[in-house]
Write a protein that binds this DNA or RNA. Structure first.
Lengths: 138, 138
DNA sequence: TTATCTGCAAACATTTTGCAGCGAG
DNA sequence: CTCGCTGCAAAATGTTTGCAGATAA
């Protein structure tokens, strides 16, 4: 059974206050910033435990860094992440699920798992970037 | 401009002979096995160049290791990979493409890219694993 | 009390980089 | 000849692990 230590609470709390995916190291820095004297290894270990418990989502950045986010739903789902501001939307894609299964089955594959993540620019960031040089307009 | 060195040729050739995704280190070992005295760094550098040229596909294993495979088609596509034997099928998913765009648009996102990879067990491996303990039957 | 959790730092694996020499063009 | 490519090994990065002490239950 897991003990509820101060560090563990701090990590869980930090995950509650951020709404985007954060790396273990970012969370570690954040916690140190907040005055919690917590070790990096502890952050990793806690994050792992949380991920196994299904309380947080884990995904890998293009850099190969693992990033974590407290997820709203326990069921299988995917993410739509803004490249610029990191805003994240949780999506479920029954269409993709069935597509994946169908494709896999048609090739004789079973025991399918799939990785589906969407990256893009959210409306706000697109607007910001679009009016970039006219920001002073007025 | 790129020079056509023996090492570069060897890497390209190795990629042609294997049909599954291989890590840089696996390819390195393979090349050394074949008698090519090639450095690991060179393999990494060559693979990077090849990936940038769009000649090979790169994807990340769950371990966070980058794996490479010469791809048949230059256009955007996805993969169905056997967890056990590594067999790979290239698939295109117009359905997913449009689904991704639709989902993204409905959330105001633009400039969408998506990561879609399927992992499963191919028919052969499923059969092999299924009759695992009756292999001596007879 | 006691078994778990913590913290530090070293181990670890993968990938990148620096520098001197070889070789393609 | 010249400049890119090569090779080795050290550096950088991200993550895991070992051990002794603190601590939640």
């Amino acid at each position: 059974m897991q003990r509820m230590t101060r560090q563990r609470t701090a990590v869980a709390d930090a995950l509650s206050t951020v709404e985007d995916f954060r790396s273990a190291q970012q969370l570690h820095e954040l916690l140190r910033d907040q005055g919690h004297g917590i070790g990096l290894a502890t952050v990793y270990r806690t994050l792992q435990a949380l991920a196994e418990a299904g309380v947080v989502d884990v995904l890998r950045t293009a850099d190969g860094e693992s990033v974590y986010r407290r997820c709203e739903r326990r069921e299988h789902h995917h993410h739509l992440v803004c490249r610029t501001c990191g805003a994240t939307v949780e999506i479920d894609g029954p269409a993709v699920e069935s597509w994946a299964d169908r494709i896999a089955a048609s090739h004789g594959f079973t025991d399918i798992t799939h990785t589906v993540e969407l990256f893009g620019t959210c409306a706000a960031c697109a607007a910001a970037s679009g009016q970039d040089d006219v920001a002073t307009g007025g």
